[in-house]
């Protein structure tokens, strides 16, 4: 059996300590108060990195993503993301600040199907000033409409602005979800298995797009994936989770088959 050392996985490179965009120390998370889904996770992410979180189903990848930006309360440890430090949960001010600086792309694109593509992208600006007008492109501020249109151009869907979201293919819908995340000009992009619901070709296109846009805008990307080709090709670093902790944290190019076997083996 693999001896999985979960609690004291060492944060990478000490020289990144000062400049880390995300720093997680001893993060613990339990949904039921009894079993820990995350148990002592340490992680640091520097600006501009593209970090892939891998691990078997139920190992806590999505939970970790949500804890990083305060979407889930944490049960122990501390999280410092984009200059906001919190334990348990961010306060209202921190939450608002995190949301303004972060884009989130879900596994299922989570678009409002019966709304136009442009309205869905405008939704990405909700929560800010003038937010009450952002439920539809028709009522949104002119600047918001322009930004939404620009974001759609970046994902090559400007010509679909007035189509209903449900009329688009799965890959196109995920690109709209990326535009919705980008429209707020985030410093950090969090993506939970962004290509999982897509066919291989569409999945690759979506990941290509992610990487291109993150490079272009200097956005830090943290994503989860079950596709090891994607992690090898699109991530700069790979962090493997197992039994609630970090199993390994390596540059993408240094990950060996044995590492992957250790990550996925022995987990029912």
């Amino acid at each position: 059996m693999f001896d999985v050392k979960v609690r004291n996985a060492v944060p990478p490179a000490g020289d990144r300590r000062e400049e880390a965009l995300i720093r997680v120390s001893g993060l613990r998370k339990s949904y039921d108060g009894a079993s820990m889904i995350l148990d002592g996770v340490n992680l640091a992410v520097s600006p501009g990195e593209r970090v892939a979180l891998i691990g078997s189903n139920g190992c806590g990848k999505s939970t970790l993503l949500k804890c990083l930006i305060g979407l889930h309360d944490i049960s122990g440890g501390t999280v410092r993301t984009l200059g906001e430090t919190f334990d348990r949960a961010p306060n209202a001010g921190q939450r608002a600040s995190l949301r303004q600086k972060t884009g989130f792309v879900f596994q299922k694109h989570c678009l409002v199907r019966r709304r136009t593509v442009l309205s869905n992208v405008v939704h990405g600006l909700l929560g800010g000033k003038g937010s009450w007008r952002g439920f539809s492109h028709a009522t949104a501020l002119p600047e918001w409409r322009q930004r939404a249109r620009d974001a759609l151009s970046e994902v090559s869907l400007a010509d679909k602005a007035m189509s209903r979201a449900e009329a688009l293919s799965g890959g196109q819908q995920q690109r709209v979800a990326i535009a919705r995340a980008l429209v707020r000009r985030p410093q950090l992009l969090i993506a939970d298995e962004p290509a999982a619901s897509l066919d291989p070709v569409s999945g690759r296109k979506v990941m290509d797009l992610f990487v291109r846009l993150c490079r272009q805008h200097g956005i830090t990307l943290v994503f989860t994936s079950h596709d090891m080709d994607h992690t090898a090709e699109f991530a700069t670093r790979v962090v493997a989770l197992k039994r609630g902790g970090v199993l390994f944290d390596k540059p993408a190019g240094a990950v060996q088959s044995a590492d992957l076997e250790a990550t996925f083996d022995g987990v029912a």
């Binding site: 979407l71 939450r95 879900f106 199907r113 309205s119 939704h123 929560g127 800010g128 952002g134 439920f135």
Partner: peptide, 25 residues
């Protein structure tokens, strides 16, 4: 529920979620 949760994650308030996601659906 997913579109509503997505808007909530973005920071939309309850009324925006209702008008933006719930009622169109």
């Amino acid at each position: 529920k997913e579109p509503q949760e997505a808007l909530s994650a973005i920071g939309a308030n309850k009324l925006s979620i209702a008008i933006g996601a719930l009622w169109p659906d």
